[in-house]
Design a protein around this nucleic acid. Structure first.
Lengths: 191, 191
DNA sequence: GTCTATACAACGATAGAC
DNA sequence: GTCTATCGTTGTATAGAC
């Protein structure tokens, strides 16, 4: 076979973790969709949790990379934060990383928890850097904590997902993001 | 008995929905904690879902009422939005309403979904009213959409929960809220 | 490495005695 | 109204053939 069963299992689990979260994703569901026998899964992975960790790490890497492209990109601090806020997202599918924070079984699994916490830490670090540089450069008003503004931006995105999924409508997400863009605009000062 | 089994079941389910969400809350867990037999539950409710709807409605009412007190309260628009942002919350327990939006089984249940969507709609309506009045009164800059700013504020709170739970630390929530307060301050204009 | 067959517990729901 | 006993299904994991 061109693609190994191991890879197929991880790919399938990535999709199911995104769609359904961890607790609601059964090995049975993974195997059925992957078209792979149960033995293969337990040959390659210790169990559901180990497979989920491998898949979640890949989902997290994709999310981080997309954030990194815009947050490390060219432009002003506000321009980069806006680019992050306005990234194209499949709003109603939810954030593949953020959605895991609502799953009690994820929080109870040290391995899954670690991926979750680390991913937000890494994105936050990028955002803090953007804000701190913006303040240094005199682009942003110095009367705000870089870490606070960074977390506000991250929270708007994550909360936007929550509001949109609750409403089964992407509009609340878009409004939340547009409101944040408008607020950030006032945070700028003449250079 | 002073308290009926029906009430005990709803109380217990309220707590478990908040702690674990819907999918991860089994009838067995409810009955064990409530100290009630299985027959009582199926006598008073059609099943797990019907009991969860009754319990979720109560949790939602509590959340709405707390928001309504500050959003309908005295003070300026920014003062009321700040009061909402700074409401005392059990951050690591999560929002009893917002946490349900991450549960796939909740989104698949029309009855539970309806409670979820309606609760955010009601809180949003209060926040929009606050912002719209603030703009009318000349307290807030007129160059922002009321609905956008309202959803931004709601999203900061909901996203703050996500960040805090992911980190197992309330600090990201507090930072996100403080950043939002700082941003709102710039939205004010002299009256 | 991959498969099928099976084990055993927990799930949500029902039956029927009291 | 409340209880215990039981049902059928699904969950995760293991056994063992190929």
């Amino acid at each position: 076979m061109t693609v190994t069963a191991r890879e197929t299992l991880i790919d399938t689990t990535q999709a199911l973790l995104w769609e359904r979260g961890y607790a609601a994703t059964s090995p049975r569901a993974i195997l059925d969709r992957a078209g792979v026998g149960q033995g293969s899964m337990y040959h390659h992975f210790a169990g559901k949790e180990a497979l989920a960790v491998a898949a979640f790490e890949r989902n997290a890497e994709v999310v981080f990379d997309k954030a990194a492209v815009v947050l490390r990109g060219e432009g002003t601090a506000v321009g980069r934060l806006n680019a992050y806020l306005l990234l194209q997202r499949e709003v109603l599918r939810g954030c593949p990383v953020g959605r895991m924070a609502g799953d009690p079984e994820v929080l109870e699994s040290p391995a899954l928890r670690a991926v979750l916490a680390r991913t937000f830490d890494r994105i936050r670090a990028l955002a803090v850097e953007v804000v701190a540089r913006g303040i240094e450069a005199g682009e942003l008003r110095p009367d705000i904590e870089a870490a606070e503004l960074a977390d506000t931006v991250l929270a708007v995105v994550q909360g936007g997902y929550v509001l949109a999924r609750a409403a089964a409508d992407p509009v609340p997400f878009e409004r939340a993001v547009q409101g944040a863009v408008a607020l950030l605009d006032l945070q700028r000062q003449e250079i």
